[in-house]
Design a protein around this nucleic acid. Structure first.
Lengths: 173, 173
DNA sequence: GGTCATGGCTAACGACGTTAGCCACTACCC
DNA sequence: GGGTAGTGGCTAACGTCGTTAGCCATGACC
C-alpha cells in the first residue's frame, strides 16, 4: 500500500483487485489481468517477479483494510467485541474472494509490510484486555463463521444472525 | 464410499487420496495420478468424467470419516462437546490437505451421497440438545481453529491448547 | 465366430505461468 | 547533438495443466 510499489505496479494491483473481486480467483490470470490493462501478459513481469508477488499485494490490502475496519469499529464502540465482530463480518462478506485469497493459504509473512499483521490483530487484543487465549478463540469463531458462510456450508435457511449472537454471547464479556 | 463406484474407480480414488495427503492439492494432477497407477492420464477419463468427480469422492471420504470420528467420540463420552472437539481437531490435523480440499470450496451437495452431510452434523447436534444456533457457533469455532492452525496463521509460539480450552469453556455446557 | 463393452493407448488442443530476446522511447551527460 | 542506460512494451516459445478424439487389444456373450 505504500511506496514499496511504483505507480505502474499500483495500477496493476488495482486491476488485479477489480478482477479478483468481480470474477473470483480462477479468473485472476496473468493474461486476463494484462488484457484489462491493455498490455500483454509478459509485460507484467517488468513490474512483478511473478504472480505470487501480485497476490501478496492483494493480501496486504486485505490486512490493511481489515485493520481499518476494526479500528473504526473500535472508535465507534470502544471495547465492544460485538462491534468488532460486526465489522469483521461485514468487511469479509463484502469482499469474499479477497478474503478467501488472503485466508486459504499460509501467510507470506516475510513479504508483507512489517507490523501489518500485528496492526490487524490489535483492536481485538485490546477488546480482550490482553487475554490472548480469548482473542484467539474469538478470532477462530469469527473466521469460522465467515468462511463457512462464504463457501455456502450452512444450509440456505440457516439463521446465521442467531448463530453469531450465540457465539458472541458465549465468548463476549 | 459405496457401490456407486466400480472397483477400478475405487482404486483410482485410493491413489488420489494417497497423492493428496502426501503431497498436497497442487500435486494432485491427472498426470501424476495416472503415473501412480501405471497408466496414462487420458485413461482416467474412462472412469471419471473429470477431475472434479475424483475430488468429490475425496470430499465424500472426508465427510464419512469425520462422521465416524465424531460418532466414536460420542460413544466414548456421550454428550461431551469437549470430546467432539478433540476428535474433530485430531482428525483434521491428521489429514490437513484432505480437510482443506473439502472445506475451501462450496460443497458439491448434489453429487454427494444423500444424507452424508447430515450424518456428519448429527453428533454435534445431539450434544447441543438440538440447539441449532449453539451447534453452528460451535462448529464455526472448531472449524476456525483448525483452518487457522493448518494454514499457519497463529504465531508459532501460540498456546493453542489454551485457546481451545477457552473457546470450549465459553461455548460448552 | 461375430459383436460389443471395457480399458488401455497416442496425439493433440487450448489455457496457464513464465522466460528469452527484441525494440521504441525517454532522460541524461559529454 | 550523440551516445548510453533505463523503462516498459512486444512476439515467440517452453513446459505443465485438464481434457478430447480416435485407435486398438482383450474378453464376455449369444
Amino acid at each position: 500500500m505504500a511506496d514499496r510499489l511504483t505507480p505502474r505496479a499500483r495500477e496493476i494491483v488495482t486491476a488485479a483487485r477489480d478482477l479478483l473481486e468481480e470474477s473470483g480467483p480462477a479468473q485472476l490470470t496473468m493474461r486476463t489481468l494484462a488484457d484489462r490493462l491493455g498490455i500483454k501478459a509478459p509485460s507484467l513481469y517488468k513490474h512483478f517477479p511473478d504472480k505470487h508477488a501480485v497476490e501478496v499485494e492483494l493480501v496486504a490490502q486485505l490486512l490493511t483494510e481489515t485493520a481499518e475496519a476494526l479500528e473504526a469499529a473500535e472508535a465507534r464502540a470502544p471495547g465492544s467485541l460485538e462491534a468488532l465482530a460486526g465489522a469483521y463480518r461485514s468487511y469479509a462478506l463484502a469482499h469474499p474472494h479477497l478474503y478467501s485469497l488472503g485466508t486459504e493459504r499460509p501467510l507470506p509473512r516475510a513479504e508483507l509490510p512489517a507490523g501489518l499483521e500485528d496492526r490487524a490483530a490489535l483492536p481485538l487484543l485490546r477488546a480482550c484486555a490482553g487475554d490472548l487465549d480469548l482473542a484467539r478463540a474469538f478470532w477462530a469463531f469469527a473466521h469460522g463463521m465467515v468462511t463457512l458462510e462464504i463457501h455456502g456450508r450452512f444450509p440456505a435457511d440457516a439463521d446465521l444472525e442467531a448463530a453469531w449472537k450465540r457465539g458472541l454471547g458465549a465468548l463476549g464479556t
